[in-house]
Every structure is written in structure tokens, then in C-alpha cells.
Amino acid sequence: MSQQINQHQQLIASYTGKMLRDHFGKGPESVFVSIGSNVISIYLRNFVTPSERVLLEQNHETIIHQIREKLLQMIIPEISSYVEALTGIKLKEFYYDWNLHSKTMMLLGICEGSVMKGAPVDTDYPGKQQLEREMDTLSQQTQRIPDEIVSFEMNPRMLVIIRKGILVHLEKELIRLGQGELLKRAKRNLEKSFLHNNNILDSILNKRVQDSFVDWNFNLDKSVTLLITGNK
């Protein structure tokens, strides 16, 4: 990895941590940034505020989700602007998700074309075909088999899966009726329960899936899944 890419990753990590502290009142314990191909991923660990902890204890997760959604909608444009000023690259899409009980979060930006020139991604990692077939099965259970699926390893611990063409007609109608956020929450719960309780993925990758995140861009009929892996 070039010194410039490494420096960009450190600066983006520092800026993201600062933005979260400024808006949430508390930042994450650590921020890991990876740049590769046309993707930038940001993985946050130990991120939960004292007020969120109280709400969790009182089983008010919905309130936490609503607050985070509002704050992230304010923060993400600022992070995108910073990335563009730093690297000259404009992020066209941004995805995010979190796991409250593991206190982790992911932010993932995609730019047009392979212009980031970060560390090379591994598009032929061990178990790729089997993993994509398993993701097809997941999609079929919760929506439909995607028209297109692309996956690659950003690094040995981080795997990105992008699916296009997954919405069914009923979901599109719910989105048209303004129920997109409710639909996303339901789909997220279903998919992540599958990902968190699926030993098949561990066997395919010969690694343990420690964390998983998923988000959608309904306008593009597109989904992004990020898997964080470790030793079995």
C-alpha cells in the first residue's frame, strides 16, 4: 500500500471520529478505513453513547435507530465532502448500518468507476462462488435472486457483497407509499438474522463471520453487505 493511501485512510478515520464525537457527544473507540477499487469502507468499534446505553436497557432500540438515522443524514454529506477535498474523488453512493449490541458500525461509500486507486481488492478470494450462491439463497428467502452480484475482499478481514435487482413488486409499492424506512428495517432484521446464524458462511470462507452489516439504495434497487471475519 502506498504511503499516500495509508495517510488518506488515517486522515479519514480521524475526521470520521471527530464528526461522530461532535454530533453524538461521544466518538468510537477505534475507526478502521480501507480504500480499494471504487469503494471506501469505514468500520467503527465500541460506538454507543451513554444515553443510547440507557435506552438499550429500557428496550427502546427504535428510538436509537431513529436518532442515528437523523444524525447520519447530517454527517454523511460532510464526510463525503471531506473525502472529495482530500482525494479528489466524489462518492456517488453511501451506505451505513450498525449493530447496537456489539457496538459496531459501518459506513461505505462508492464512487463511479475504479478511480480510487487504493490497495488492490481480491476479486478471486477462496470460496467466492460458493459464497455468492449462498447470498443468492438468502436473497431468494427474503426478496428474490438478484439480477447481478459482485463480491470482493477489501482486505483479509473485510468482504463486500453488492447485489443489484433484488426488489419485488410489493416492496416497490411500499416504497412508493412512503414506507421505505419500515421496509428497510424489516429486511435488515431478516437478512442479519440469517447472516448471524449461518455457519455455512464460516465453512465457505474458512473464517468466522464476526460482524455483518447490510444496507439498501432503493432508488438504485441495490444492496451492499459488509462481512467482518476473523479466525475460526
Rank of each mutant, 00 (worst) to 15 (best):
residue 227 L to S: 00
residue 101 H to G: 09
residue 206 N to I: 02
residue 137 T to M: 05
residue 135 M to S: 10
residue 192 K to C: 13
residue 71 L to K: 08
residue 55 L to Y: 07
residue 198 N to I: 01
residue 80 S to D: 05
residue 23 H to D: 07
residue 94 F to P: 12
residue 77 P to K: 02
residue 170 L to A: 13
residue 96 Y to M: 13
residue 116 M to C: 05
residue 217 N to T: 12
residue 199 N to H: 11
residue 98 W to N: 08
residue 218 F to W: 14
residue 128 K to W: 03
residue 182 L to C: 03
residue 112 E to C: 09
residue 211 D to N: 11
residue 65 H to Q: 04
residue 223 S to C: 11
residue 31 V to L: 04
residue 199 N to I: 06
residue 111 C to G: 08
residue 41 S to Q: 09
residue 51 S to I: 15
residue 137 T to H: 06
residue 216 W to G: 15
residue 212 S to Y: 01
residue 68 R to C: 04
residue 168 V to T: 09
residue 28 P to T: 06
residue 54 V to N: 05
residue 169 H to N: 15
residue 43 Y to P: 01
residue 231 N to M: 01
residue 24 F to N: 10
residue 88 G to L: 05
residue 180 G to E: 14
residue 79 I to H: 10
residue 144 R to H: 08
residue 86 L to M: 07
residue 5 I to F: 01
residue 202 D to N: 14
residue 44 L to P: 00
residue 231 N to K: 02
residue 45 R to H: 10
residue 84 E to N: 07
residue 119 A to T: 01
residue 124 D to C: 06
residue 202 D to Q: 09
residue 72 L to I: 11
residue 89 I to N: 05
residue 210 Q to D: 09
residue 138 L to I: 15
residue 201 L to I: 11
residue 170 L to S: 12
residue 123 T to Y: 01
residue 119 A to H: 02
residue 44 L to W: 07
residue 2 S to D: 03
residue 88 G to N: 07
residue 113 G to I: 08
residue 45 R to L: 12
residue 154 M to V: 06
residue 83 V to I: 11
residue 161 I to A: 03
residue 104 T to Q: 14
residue 100 L to Q: 04
residue 58 Q to Y: 04
residue 144 R to P: 09
residue 178 G to L: 15
residue 223 S to L: 12
residue 194 F to A: 13
residue 179 Q to Y: 14
residue 46 N to R: 11
residue 172 K to H: 10
residue 76 I to V: 13
residue 207 K to E: 03
residue 85 A to W: 02
residue 36 G to V: 00
residue 144 R to S: 08
residue 222 K to M: 14
residue 186 A to M: 11
residue 64 I to T: 07
residue 82 Y to T: 04
residue 215 D to L: 08
residue 147 D to H: 14
residue 89 I to W: 04
residue 222 K to Q: 12
residue 68 R to G: 06
residue 114 S to C: 11
residue 215 D to T: 08
residue 223 S to N: 12
residue 44 L to H: 05
residue 28 P to Q: 07
residue 67 I to M: 09
residue 222 K to R: 06
residue 106 M to G: 05
residue 8 H to I: 03
residue 232 K to Y: 02
residue 186 A to T: 13
residue 197 N to V: 02
residue 164 K to D: 15
residue 107 L to S: 10
residue 217 N to G: 11
residue 22 D to E: 11
residue 112 E to T: 12
residue 88 G to R: 15
residue 33 V to I: 02
residue 195 L to K: 02
residue 42 I to D: 02
residue 51 S to A: 14
residue 108 L to M: 15
residue 168 V to D: 06
residue 223 S to G: 09
residue 227 L to V: 00
residue 143 Q to A: 07
residue 32 F to R: 08
residue 165 G to R: 04
residue 23 H to C: 15
residue 193 S to V: 03
residue 197 N to D: 05
residue 13 A to M: 08
residue 129 Q to S: 07
residue 10 Q to R: 10
residue 211 D to Y: 12
residue 172 K to V: 13
residue 87 T to H: 02
residue 223 S to V: 13
